[in-house]
Amino acid sequence: MNRLCVTGLGIILLMVILGLLAPLIAKNPYKTDLKDRLEPPSLKHPFGTDQLGRDLFSRVLWGARTSLFVALTISLISMSLGCIIGAVSGYFGGIIDDIIGRIIDVFLAIPELVFNIALVGIFCAAYGVSTWNVILAVVITNWVSYARITRGIVLSLKEREFVLCAKAIGAGEWYILLRHVIPNSIGPIVVLATLNMGNVIMTIASLGFLGLGIQPPTPEWGQMINAGKDYITTAPWLTFFPGLFIALSVLGFNLLGEGLRDVLERRSFIE
């Protein structure tokens, strides 16, 4: 087994387990205790307490839940959307491909974070504050990379002789797309999805830091850093621990993604 894969997977599993066990091992992340404000890390509060006296360890753990769940939701939605659009565009070609191709170009031309901020702003104004705003906004910018990659893979698969052979035995277009083309493009897409999970976690944290993401009091890492930045000289643990967890989870997904790429590419090389 690939060492990168194992390390990455280990970090991710640790995050997931900590998130899942949060109700058992962590205290109530919302409980304020003004007597214990800004306490440094101690046995009672392993990560210290924040400006409202809440236990930071509990908040970071519950934050893992929020971040991973939202990131996974975003990735799954944008992956399904992007892959279907990309595959249809690449496989059927013609005018559909022209239109989708141009749309992809337009999306790629706008800086992602700026686009996200604008979208969240619009959704907040239109529908009020909610986590779904963040999910929707990130999905809208995120599906593009999936569509672009899938389109490329499908275009090259389409020219392969086994697709021609399938046509020659009387298979229909949708059958070929679903049974031959898409299964053969899954490898690179899985790699992309893993690497992209790291990006999405960063985006969520960035939006949170800017005050546009998941709103307090729900624990979320980016937003916690934002709240902690005013105390960075007196209580650095407020920014350090959420930051560490963001970095670790992004690292975990990047390592896993790189490792998967090695494994999958070597296999296709042998084949």
Partner: peptide, 11 residues
């Protein structure tokens, strides 16, 4: 077809 190695779905 010409290239038998390409004629089957590798999966």
């Amino acid at each position: 077809p010409q290239n038998p190695e390409e004629a089957f779905d590798p999966r």
